[in-house]
Design a protein around this nucleic acid. Structure first.
Lengths: 235, 235
DNA sequence: CGTATCCTTGAACCATGTCAAGCAATGTGG
DNA sequence: CCACATTGCTTGACATGGTTCAAGGATACG
């Protein structure tokens, strides 16, 4: 649980045109930079827990954060991953409810913390910022609705193929076509809602079918179209 | 697809303290009343379709609206139901995306249509309204995340018991303990993501176990605690 | 070098989906 | 008002995808 404070550059996050911060005034950006605190989270560290009250949101500067809910039998359901430029924790802050997910760094990560008051002040002062934020939340809601449908209607095989495609789109491949996120078999199972053994068996099948290549946690994508066909996923 | 325009009273919707409209100024309310149009939708009528671009949002004045997504094999996944005071369609309007669900009246319903420009103008002018709206969306997102976890981890039996509890909380019971929403067995199946036959068999079991009583589509709740225990659902 | 964690495979089991057939309820047109 | 069609509901039989349990191998770590 070691965490060191350090000042990281937020310029890239703010200037990124997809960022909700991209429409802030210079004055607002200065206030944001003044109020934010940056913290290092070593791989494996929990950033916040479900049922916890949040006093602000976090913006991921580097690393990868896993957001998951814990089900009745203690099994984790991964809701999403957050990477550079993504913000987390805003759902609870805005709804005034307790956190509904736990956030855990699965890579060494730097996160910026923005206190609730700063966020609310920006919402009150800048309607364009509000609209950007709403847009972000609504997109996430759309993805959640889609995920509900897929998990309810698709087979495990389809869901695994789809998960690989989505991970590829989110985290990209290196120049050797290897997925740029490292997940355990269990985590992969917790994304698609199945047993670890099922993931292992299906990954082997995909390998036998020359769709992917496996090397420990490294997954090399050989045939994305084949995966899309299996997943019935076209986008 | 018959739909008649009629002026319905929006006062109750607006004054309701849980409504997102409750913090509007008198001036804003007057503009809202001026710009809104009210329409009758006969049971079975589709209000909007997924993939459609939305030009505004709807507020349910009376009746019940079913919101569902259509999966690959054409099977419908019910995302939620909207009743008096609920608004629908805002996700697509705010995100600028096409509708991700289809909305269909499953009872005769009156809906008020609020054009996008009116909504955006209220957001731009009134930060408290924005915050209320964000809060609403965030709550829905929280419910979606919970639903993902339940559908991924719970058995069909648990999910059906839970669905009955949630329907009871949302639509209440009449003074004879009968659920105040009428769904086909297939619709019930499409809520929890299972086959119609499974719902039928499990409902019979619940009846045998004296948890519910069945009379056509009428479901009488006899033992809510028993259902909660089966569902592992406590709230 | 030993211990813990993760990964893999096989076998058995079971919850749930699918298919088929009959029944009940409801609506339609003559 | 009846015959017929349509749709929804129910039940049984069966197939199977997926989970669970168990055991062994691989890999990483202090």
């Amino acid at each position: 649980m070691k965490s060191i404070e350090k000042n990281v550059s937020c310029e890239e996050c703010i200037l990124n045109s997809k960022s909700i911060f991209s429409h802030l005034t210079t004055e607002e950006i200065n206030e944001l930079l003044l109020k934010k605190t940056s913290t290092f989270y070593r791989k494996g560290t929990i950033i916040y827990q479900e049922t916890q009250r949040m006093s602000g949101i976090y913006c991921v500067n580097s690393g990868i954060v896993k957001l998951y809910k814990t089900g009745n039998e203690g099994r984790e359901q991964i809701i999403r991953f957050a990477k550079f430029g993504d913000i987390i924790g805003y759902r609870s802050v805005l709804s005034g409810e307790k956190a509904c997910t736990t956030a855990k760094a699965i890579e060494d990560s730097y996160l910026c913390f923005i206190p609730s008051e700063t966020l609310f002040s920006m919402i009150r002062r800048n309607p364009e910022f509000s609209l950007n934020l709403m847009q972000l939340i609504c997109k996430e809601l759309g993805e959640a609705n889609l995920f509900i449908t897929e998990i309810a209607q698709k087979s495990v095989r389809e869901r695994l193929a789809e998960a690989l495609i989505i991970l590829k789109n989110t985290f990209k491949l290196d120049n050797n076509d290897v997925l740029q996120i490292s997940l355990s078999r269990e985590e992969l199972a917790n994304v698609i809602g199945t047993a670890t053994e099922s993931v292992i068996r299906l990954l082997s099948e995909f390998k036998d079918d020359k769709l992917i290549e496996l090397n420990g946690r490294n997954i090399k994508i050989l045939n994305i179209k084949g995966l899309m066909k299996i997943a019935n996923y076209y986008e």
